[in-house]
Write a protein that binds this DNA or RNA. Structure first.
Lengths: 136, 136
DNA sequence: CAGCATCCCACGCGATACTG
DNA sequence: CAGTATCGCGTGGGATGCTG
């Protein structure tokens, strides 16, 4: 099991600002708003039609769903299949690249399940004992 | 060993919409804009002053840096220490909770290093062979 | 059904200037 | 140094209405 020295980062990171924070690009790709529910749904429930995703995610509007699906398709995380029928039918499925996010999502889910409460608690503590940002 | 059935999700997820996508809350907490560079910097280089972070991240403005640091402090991911001196000195360090993101960030960095090229390639392929979204 | 077009609005960010 | 205050704007998202 190789792959050492991703953490902590190498000395290059110390000097080359371009190498700083290798994960920030992921923010726009997989952590834009609505993208994780979409990927999660496709990864969990498999190939789905547009309206299925729309109903599953519930509060999303079709416009935004289309936008995010286009982005995910462009980034190679989702595959769109158009069936020229009447009425038209379009199916979305997660790609191989998208599927490679699986372990990562599992990891994220574990962290969320174990630590989200702590975040909530920290927020409550901060909110009722910090009128200003003074450090007592 | 252990920790099974986070992936794939349980049957509850199928029926209870509230359980859908357990990782989407993380988007606002750790994947807001500028948060990953901040956490990365604090995790990598340890305790730092405000101006150190400002210089390290370079393109961030002090206003936004303050906003994100406040949010991270409120969420319990970062600890702020104020030293009443002249000139004033404030130090930020990652908290225990924030440090628990370490393995996650390493995981994310691995994925980024191995798959970011694929995303770039997919984008190029999409851009010059898809004038409209027809599915030939 | 699966969208696109349009209008509108709020928020987040950037730039600038100013304090304790 | 470590912020705060203010202004302005661009982008993303919501709502609505309309097509093939």
């Amino acid at each position: 099991m190789g792959n050492e020295s991703i953490w902590p980062p190498s000395a290059d990171v110390m000097t080359n600002p371009e190498l700083a924070c290798p994960i920030s690009p992921l923010t726009d790709i997989v952590f834009s708003k609505w993208t994780t529910p979409i990927l999660w749904s496709l990864h969990t429930f498999g190939r789905q039609r547009f309206v299925e995703l729309e109903r599953r995610i519930k509060t999303i509007t079709p416009k935004v769903l289309t936008q995010r699906l286009r982005q995910l398709e462009r980034d190679g995380l989702v595959v769109r299949t158009y069936h020229p029928e009447v009425p038209p039918r379009v199916e979305y499925e997660i790609s191989e690249l998208g599927r490679s996010l699986g372990p990562l999502f599992a990891h994220l889910a574990v962290w969320a399940n174990t630590n989200l409460d702590n975040v909530e608690q920290a927020r409550r503590h901060y909110d009722n004992a910090a009128p200003a940002h003074d450090a007592r």
